[in-house]
């Protein structure tokens, strides 16, 4: 039985906290930008011109069918050769946003098409504008329908931010590697890191469940 000792990690409290904050920064930024990409992508997929639809479809398929690690490397190491230079954090946010945007596009598209056209028709027949129909009639049930998948995708993104360590963005996993190299307490460092990721995920899942329960109150069939 090895001798576990978490005490040497205490001096690195600040690094852990900074790592967590950076991880949250990456997650939240990529979610926000990715959602904007997703909304545009979903609208184009539903009602854009054919060429734009093909473009968005290609984007989604390329991003979802190649390694995220490769995507972040291309942004950080390849783009500078054509003059686009990013800091590690910037490159990570860009890569993760593009990554999340691809999944969000597909999820939001499925949400919009889960609403029967007769609901849109009913709204138009009451003399509402297209925007009123979208925002009041289509979106609330559409968002409810995709709430489980978009929040799972958020969790995958949070865990996935660890790849930013590979371009030396100092998020939680990167901090863990650094502390490990200083303390040689691999087990303790990675056990603690695991625990932190786990706690973050559980925290968000609880928040999502509470928000979901508060917002989606109307009864549904099934």
């Amino acid at each position: 039985m090895p001798n576990f000792n978490f005490r040497p990690l205490w001096r690195y409290e600040d690094q852990f906290i900074d790592g967590v904050l950076t991880t949250l920064l990456l997650t939240v930024s990529a979610t926000a930008i990715g959602l904007v990409i997703g909304i545009i992508g979903a609208v184009v997929l539903r009602s854009g011109p054919k060429s734009a639809r093909i473009g968005v479809r290609a984007y989604i398929e390329i991003i979802r069918n190649t390694p995220a690690l490769l995507q972040i490397f291309i942004i950080f190491f390849v783009l500078p050769t054509i003059g686009l230079k990013f800091s590690p954090i910037q490159a990570s946010i860009v890569a993760l946003s593009i990554y999340f945007g691809a999944y969000a596009s597909e999820i939001l598209r499925s949400g919009l098409s889960s609403i029967p056209p007769s609901q849109i028709e009913a709204g138009l027949c009451l003399g509402l504008t297209r925007w009123q129909v979208l925002s009041r009639i289509v979106l609330p049930p559409a968002i409810r329908n995709i709430y489980p998948s978009i929040t799972s995708q958020f969790v995958l993104l949070l865990l996935g931010t660890s790849i930013a360590s590979q371009v030396s963005a100092d998020e939680l996993f990167h901090a863990a590697g650094f502390i490990d190299s200083r303390t040689y307490r691999s087990f303790e460092v990675y056990a603690l890191t695991c625990g932190i990721y786990f706690t973050l995920v559980v925290f968000f899942k609880i928040v999502f469940a509470l928000v979901g329960r508060a917002v989606f109150r109307w009864p549904t069939r099934r």
Partner: peptide, 10 residues
């Protein structure tokens, strides 16, 4: 319409 088309969330 035949299918009432009420808004389920309201």
């Amino acid at each position: 319409f035949q299918a009432f088309n009420l808004f389920p969330h309201m």
